[in-house]
């Protein structure tokens, strides 16, 4: 026995409209929530410099520069060690003339994880 077509189209139309309505309501709720939290984060950032105005007990060191230099030194040492190991293996002498940072790329571990996540089919 065939269903009444007006009933069929009512189900289809009501279904699609209510699904979209429900999810649009969620979009609105989540967007508002996101905006509130962004605003809260921004106001917290603005508040942060205030305590810094107080007289500091001692001059603060410059950790970012020092640590970045230390990082670079460590990286260069690792590269030099790798080149030395290679030189020892093939009996050639290499000189490292410069070490330049290449453009940022997705790291190899990330790429390996992505390939593992999607390689099952």
């Amino acid at each position: 026995m065939l269903m009444d077509w007006s009933y069929v189209f009512t189900v289809v139309l009501t279904g699609m409209v209510v699904v979209f309505l429900g999810l649009v309501l969620l979009i609105a709720a989540i967007t508002i929530m996101g905006k509130i939290f962004e605003a809260l984060r921004a106001s917290k950032k603005d508040e942060k410099p205030a305590p810094a105005a107080k007289p500091a007990p001692a001059p603060a060191p410059k950790p970012p520069v020092v640590s970045s230099l230390a990082d670079d030194d460590e990286v260069i040492a690792v590269i030099a060690a790798a080149v030395a190991a290679m030189a020892e293996a093939d009996g050639t002498v290499y000189a490292i003339k410069s070490v330049k940072r290449s453009a940022p790329r997705r790291n190899a571990w990330g790429a390996a994880a992505r390939s593992e996540m999607t390689s099952s089919f």
């Binding site: 189209f9 189900v11 289809v12 699609m16 699904v19 979209f20 999810l23 979009i27 989540i30």
Partner: peptide
């Protein structure tokens, strides 16, 4: 992204027809 999640439900209601 919710909109894409809603659009993909069209399969359900069109199959009803």
């Amino acid at each position: 992204s919710f909109l894409l999640g809603a659009a993909a439900q069209a399969g359900i209601f069109l199959t009803f027809i």
